[in-house]
């Protein structure tokens, strides 16, 4: 009985689903520190297009990424409804700009399907898997692979 419940517990995860340029993405809830309303950021010189800039989060300097831009869907039109999701990646915090946060879904790990074979290497490296949320496909993303290429880019500059 005890073992069964543990197995169940370890399998079930909660995801936060959000929209990026009309597409549904999601992220494990444990990675998320907080969700904030969009406010203008300070431009970071010489940064790649997907880095919008930096913002002040209670005295800490946090870089903000535009997910739509990262996937090559053009810049997110920044407006008041947009939100910034502050997430923990390794030992640092980053923010990602998304159109809106839609819901929190509880799913079983087994529901996540392996990413189907797709052409774009960048996209493939970031999408951990896909799953169906109320008949709509949601893409589970991995933040490490978003930050890493950008971080290396910037160090090369």
């Amino acid at each position: 009985m005890q073992a069964e419940r543990e197995a169940e517990y370890s399998k079930g995860i909660e995801l936060v689903a959000f929209n990026v340029n009309g597409q549904k993405y999601c992220l494990e809830i444990t990675k998320i520190r907080e969700i904030r309303r969009w406010s203008p950021v300070t431009v970071l010189p010489h940064s790649p297009a997907e880095v919008l800039g930096v913002m002040n989060l209670r005295g800490a300097v946090i870089p903000i990424f535009d997910l739509a831009c990262f996937f090559g869907m053009g810049k997110t039109q920044a407006n008041e409804r947009n939100v910034v999701i502050i997430c923990a990646v390794r030992d640092r915090s980053i923010g990602i700009l998304v159109e809106s946060v839609s819901e929190i879904v509880s799913i079983d790990m087994s529901e996540i399907q392996e990413t189907p074979k797709i052409k774009s290497e960048t996209t493939k490296s970031v999408i951990q898997g896909v799953l169906s949320v109320e008949g709509e496909m949601a893409r589970l993303i991995s933040l490490n692979s978003i930050v890493d290429p950008i971080a290396t880019d910037m160090e090369l500059l």
Partner: peptide, 19 residues
């Protein structure tokens, strides 16, 4: 947070809370 940025030595926070 952002690696080395050419032409920029550091950041600061101004009176309006912006960086």
């Amino acid at each position: 947070a952002c690696g080395n940025v050419p032409g920029v030595s550091a950041a600061t926070i101004l009176g309006d809370g912006k960086i």
